[in-house]
Design a protein around this nucleic acid. Structure first.
Lengths: 349, 349
DNA sequence: CTGAAAGCGCTTACAG
DNA sequence: CTGAAAGCGCTTACAG
């Protein structure tokens, strides 16, 4: 009452409609009245009532999400969908709808196509997992031109003007993995790093983890031998098994294996089938297949970064910015969680 | 339009005021019209518009929080306050205010007094850390009589009708601690469990962790010797140091120490001062003093359970129930987080 | 037991 | 460039 648009209008000797115009930075207000109103707003420290605003406005706000589609090999992306849906349920009463777009993680063109589809629609905010660097950068630029705020999850793109990144600090997560492995090995032991990925592009992502892992042992008193192998482009189980057989035949003394992504379940499967469960195994992500191997002891640790929460927080960051006009942290590193046989039951992915 | 109170009123041939009366289960409506309106609501699957409701209603909703006050020894309780304030900032636009009450963790009477103070005010929901079992039970009963929903954090009270418990699964967290210690010790090693607490009552809480810890090694192939000591009622540093000196003089071969609460920082301090950093150390909670000792390697692991998020979620659960009339999970176990030198920087307490 | 009217704090056409 | 009026979907007195 003492601070609403009515009061501002009264003090400025204008109608509430005019106040509303400057509030939303719309055209059709003289500089003079605009400045007068702005001054009064500042004086009153005017805070719009979001309830009233959303109730009065019939305009629905549209957010779009663009993430990889779920497949047998990319079950991981189930969690972000859930996160998006949770956020949607929470904010739909504010007149927000979320259009969900998916692309094929192994096909850049599908990303380009879907991002173009999004830009054809009127959209107020975008949540995207920018797996393909160049294509994502191009998309981001178009969004900036249209002044559409973007939030990135899962991995970041360097040097780009997005609203926020919400996801892992990849280097640190590799570092932590090494720290965990450090408890399992002795000086002189041999450690194998395994990257499993179809797309060369995704390597950027995995490489950061590998770097963090190697950096840990570089200046550590415990000296270990680190070897590595990339399994690409074929990543089906037979390909994984074939390569691991080769490597582990050449290096019969591998004490621990670090897999840089969720494909750790394939490696676990292999170790189990070949009775090599004595090799310590550390990998990524909270997937049913991996949890099974955590239970039966083939996998020792999983590093997880709450993909569901990443997406949830991503949508809420858009909401915070677009609906509440609030500030958003430009970079929000998710906690790096260590999952073991002992705590997986209460883990919220 | 097709589903609001107006439409219901039209179909039932009554005014919106009457619809509002049955909506809020107020008196002064004949059974007949009430049933008619109820039927139409069900038919339409009527969902009230929360925005409109909160905007129209001038009634503010009051939640109360009742947790231990912060002191040098109980810095831990800083985090829940932050969580409460975060939630408050988020929901105050819905006309919710939160009254914060504090009690002395070492004084049951202060809990009784503060809980009585709360009940003197008109309150719509309560968040409480029920450290004192009997007093909390009594308080809970009074709340139930007044139909005030209660959410518990930090620790649960058995067999009581609360809206929700949000906090650790204590037994499991002890179990996980043992799992971590297991990586650090060998068969035959000696492990010391340390409970540090002023109030005997708090032991219930610590005992559950101890039980989980011991249970882990009970049916484990690796046989270890577990000894324990309780430091009570004096818990200042000199008392801790004195007792540890005694124990570690008697048992010169202790390989690892498990402290069942945040007082691990006192133990760390002692180990550092007495040059016994070679003893592995595992404890609880993300406090600055402990983080320092995590950094310099005196503490190996901290087990944390996001006290800030517990309180945040607790308030949001009340909001969910009271404002949105939504369902709330009766028990929500927080993830059991493992914090090390490697991942503490990105941990959100 | 029930209804008519005003109002919550905004936004939205429409008219000038 | 600006204002008057209606309306978003509820709740709140007040009158009967």
């Amino acid at each position: 009452m003492l601070t609403g648009v009515k009061e501002i209008a009264r003090r400025a000797n204008v109608s509430t409609g005019t106040v509303d115009r400057v509030l939303h930075n719309r055209t059709g207000v003289s500089e003079a009245t605009k400045n007068k109103i702005l001054a009064i707003m500042k004086e009153l420290d005017y805070q719009p009532n979001i309830l009233a605003r959303r109730l009065a406005s019939k305009k629905v706000l549209r957010f779009a999400s663009l993430i990889p589609s779920v497949s047998a090999e990319t079950e991981y992306w189930d969690a972000p969908i859930k996160g998006i849906e949770m956020a949607e349920a929470e904010i739909k009463q504010f007149g927000i709808v979320i259009d969900k777009y998916f692309y094929d993680q192994n096909d850049k063109q599908s990303f380009v196509k879907q991002s173009n589809n999004i830009l054809k629609t009127p959209i107020d905010g975008i949540l995207v997992a920018p797996i393909f660097i160049e294509e994502s950068l191009a998309f981001s630029k178009l969004c900036n031109l249209k002044k559409i705020p973007q939030v990135f999850i899962n991995s970041d793109i360097p040097n780009e003007s997005r609203l926020s990144y919400i996801g892992p600090d990849l280097f640190q997560s590799g570092h932590l993995s090494a720290h965990m492995v450090n408890y399992l090995v002795a000086s002189g032991d041999k450690i194998l790093i395994v990257n499993i990925s179809k797309e060369i592009d995704s390597y950027h992502h995995l490489m950061r983890k590998e770097e963090g892992f190697i950096a840990y042992f570089k200046d550590h008193q415990k000296k270990v031998k680190i070897i590595k192998t990339d399994i690409t482009p074929d990543t089906d189980y037979p390909s994984v098994a074939k390569r691991l057989t080769e490597v582990l035949t050449e290096h019969t003394d591998v004490k621990a294996i670090f897999v840089t992504n969720s494909r750790v379940f394939s490696v676990a499967q292999f170790l189990q089938k070949t009775n090599q469960e004595h090799i310590f195994l550390v990998g990524y992500d909270f997937l049913p297949g991996s949890i099974e191997h955590l239970k039966n002891g083939v996998i020792d640790f999983l590093i997880c970064q709450k993909p569901q929460e990443q997406a949830y927080k991503g949508i809420m960051a858009l909401y915070q910015n677009v609906v509440l006009n609030g500030d958003v942290e430009p970079t929000y590193f998710m906690p790096i969680d260590v999952i073991t046989k002992e705590n997986y039951t209460s883990y919220r992915n």
